[in-house]
């Protein structure tokens, strides 16, 4: 259970991180606000409660790790890493600019604290399964977390990995599906159909949870739940969460933020 103080602390952080995301995207003149704002709570929870990055050696993989498979949401990751003191606050302004350590999609080698390079959707679950398997072989008790988009799981490789993880009993693997119901050009349901995600993953041998992905207590409960199977947490989220005019709007998947919009967003996030 999260203590009241922890909850308040994380909620304050969430506001701060959303502001950093909007700033980053505004300075960059492009980027993905919708899918960054929807994963803020998940990322904060994981980095403050589960993943213990050694600030002296962020590259070490002898710890629990996170793979942001939906790499386009990386502004949220960069903002959280900056709150942890791994990325300098000023450096956030260089996101996507020439010579920056902050690439448009996560780059493990350029950015300390980023555990895996991603950007081509559908690949992160396999890599996470590899990490989890490695920890099993070595007898380590670390966990591997991965964040998938609800559109991203249309990729076939996701299902290869889902079968693999279940068959290899990777109970140290935990996947979040950022279930914000939108993708780049349409609603997820328009292409994926009205399939019951929970029962599909359960049938493949995963332990499934359905939570509010913006509620730290629910995230905590799902993550802490002991399971003998790999875990998938279907997190209901709002694309563009926190900025009223971006919420649930397909066009805010990827869009330049104007000066007016920037000011309005920052006012709302105060």
């Amino acid at each position: 259970m999260l203590s009241k103080e922890e909850k308040i602390f994380l909620e304050e952080k969430a506001k701060k991180v959303r502001k950093l995301i909007i700033e980053m995207l505004y300075y960059a003149g492009s980027g993905h606000p919708g899918g960054s704002l929807s994963i803020v709570e998940i990322l904060l929870y994981l980095y403050y409660k589960e993943i213990d990055i050694d600030l002296k050696d962020p590259r070490s993989t002898d710890r629990s790790m996170l793979i942001l498979s939906k790499g386009h949401g990386c502004p949220a990751l960069y903002a959280v890493l900056s709150e942890l003191g791994i990325i300098d606050r000023e450096v956030l302004k260089t996101y996507k600019k020439l010579d920056s350590i902050l690439q448009g999609h996560p780059d493990r080698n350029k950015t300390l604290g980023v555990d895996m390079s991603t950007g081509s959707l559908g690949q992160g679950l396999s890599v996470a399964a590899g990490c989890a398997l490695a920890d099993k072989i070595k007898g380590k008790s670390h966990k591997t977390y991965v964040i998938l988009g609800d559109g991203e799981i249309q990729e076939g490789q996701i299902w290869e990995a889902a079968i693999f993880a279940a068959n290899n009993n990777l109970d140290n693997l935990c996947a979040f599906i950022d279930y914000n119901k939108l993708q780049l050009t349409s609603k997820v349901e328009d292409v994926f159909g009205k399939c019951n995600l929970l029962s599909v993953w359960a049938d493949l041998g995963w332990q499934c949870f359905e939570i509010d992905g913006h509620d730290f207590e629910e995230i905590d409960m799902a993550v802490k739940f002991k399971s003998e199977k790999p875990k998938v947490i279907i997190a209901h989220t709002i694309k563009g969460k926190g900025v009223s005019f971006m919420e649930n709007k397909i066009e805010w998947h990827s869009k330049k933020i104007s000066e007016k919009e920037f000011e309005k967003a920052m006012l709302e996030l105060r």
Partner: peptide, 15 residues
């Protein structure tokens, strides 16, 4: 499932 195999290899190499 070769694509997954390649990804799993990447994860194993990370570790």
């Amino acid at each position: 499932a070769e694509q997954n195999m390649v990804g799993v290899s990447a994860g194993l190499a990370l570790k």
